[in-house]
């Protein structure tokens, strides 16, 4: 199926916070209660529509396990968006956010949109991290924030789509150089110019004064 843009996402955060479940809920609209360990990286994809444009999200779901950290770190590069996930019922997963964020900032491109996600909002009775704490952390670090439940699907669509909207806006503003695939954005096959030196489709503004697009 043709698309105007492809955005690459990564999902990061401690093991067991529900990264793969968020992805499964988003791509397949189902919940898997059994925790299957993610090894290295796994992939998911879904088409969404923003501003009546078809956008394909290609999502790299990374392993939270320490054993794979050096491998997964290398995938931050070349992502346009990141979902940084913690578990609202386990405080330590919230406490580790700074480490994850440092890692992400260090290894990704500076324009990457990061969405902070407090997952398992259905488990209110076991909550250890207040919603306000998540909001404060997000504000302090310039992230977008949302609480989700991969189980009930609450806010899952929004988390992925709002991140895409943010990326899309940055493209419109010319912040992202869409001709550099290292930014995690690819122009769809039907929309890409035949000659790479020609301006790309998508009506984006001037990109970083390069004179291109």
């Amino acid at each position: 199926m043709s698309y105007a843009y492809l955005f690459k996402y990564i999902i990061i955060g401690d093991t067991g916070v529900g990264k793969s479940c968020l992805l499964l809920q988003f791509t397949d609209k189902r919940f898997q209660p059994v925790h299957d360990l993610t090894i290295g990286v796994e992939f998911g994809a879904r088409m969404i529509t923003i501003d009546s444009k078809q956008i394909k999200l290609q999502i790299w779901d990374t392993a939270g396990q320490e054993a794979f950290r050096s491998i997964t770190r290398s995938y931050y590069r070349g992502a346009a968006g990141a979902l940084l996930v913690y578990d609202i019922t386990r405080r330590e997963t919230f406490n580790h956010l700074t480490t994850w964020l440092d890692d992400a900032r260090q290894h990704s491109n500076s324009n990457m949109v990061i969405m902070l996600i407090g997952n398992k909002s259905d488990l209110e009775s076991r909550r250890e991290v207040k919603k306000e704490e998540g909001e404060a952390f997000a504000r302090e670090h310039g992230l977008v924030f949302m609480e989700t439940s991969a189980k009930t699907a609450a806010n899952v669509e929004e988390a992925f789509i709002n991140t895409a909207k943010e990326i899309y806006e940055k493209i419109q503003e010319g912040v992202f150089d869409i001709n550099n695939e290292a930014n995690g954005i690819k122009i769809g096959p039907q929309h890409s110019p035949t000659n790479p030196s020609l301006p790309g489709a998508g009506g984006s503004g001037g990109s970083q004064g390069s004179g291109c697009c």
Binding site: V41, F43, A45, S74, R77, G78
Partner: peptide, 13 residues
């Protein structure tokens, strides 16, 4: 798409 992506020489997934 994933076949394309798997051939990314800069990321080498």
């Amino acid at each position: 798409d994933e076949v394309q992506m798997s051939a990314d020489h800069k990321l080498r997934p």
